[in-house]
Amino acid sequence: MGKIIELKKVNKWFDKFQVLKDIDLEVAPQEKIVICGPSGSGKSTLIRCINRLEEHQDGNIVVDGTELSESTKNIEKIRAEVGMVFQQFNLFPHLSILDNCTLAPIWVKKLPKKQAEEIAMKNLTRVQIDDQALKFPGQLSGGQQQRAAIARALCMEPKIMLFDEPTSALDPEMIKEVLDVMVDLAKGGMTMIVVTHEMGFAKEVADYMIFMDEGKIVERAKTKEFFESPKSERTKLFLSQIL
């Protein structure tokens, strides 16, 4: 099967500090990958490179057949195909939930307003906040906001979804409602790369686990192997602390 995301020898520096070191990663369509690791290990930076919110300085990143590089001609097209969910939700506070969801389809994909609204309502129903569609983000709870953010990304009908610690800013009782939505999404066949510390979620949906430390991929393994017989000492230590 062809790969939808391919990273080869990707290196990135913030000034002199190297955040990504020789990252190799391949993701096939419909694969779910969970990336974990201590803070500062470069996991967020890695997935932000995949839709070029961060630029890499060395190596190749190919997303859906398009190489990401300096010439940004196609970057908007790539971003429209790669949905992203942020730790801090980043909903647009000046727009209603419905408008948050229809804005990009209307302006970027040039869909007619009516069609965009239909898609938006379909996705809001999917994340179970269709009854909040006309409210503003500030009127919603954290869990509802994050679900709205997922719906907003889904409205672009992306091929890939990136999740950057989607539950880290949530109160404990709201984490489950967001994870439920993500599990549902995974079962629907979406290609997903998730940075998270929710190991229960990882065990349930991930095809592969990736453990990162100090900018390097320390271990990449099938989910079951990863939890039951991790190879590297660093991974064992991390898992013993987090589980």
Binding site: L53, A80, Q88, F92, A104, V108
Partner: peptide, 11 residues
């Protein structure tokens, strides 16, 4: 985050 969210939607 507002800039990033807008850009991640392809704007």
């Amino acid at each position: 985050g507002q800039y990033e969210a807008a850009r991640s939607l392809g704007m």
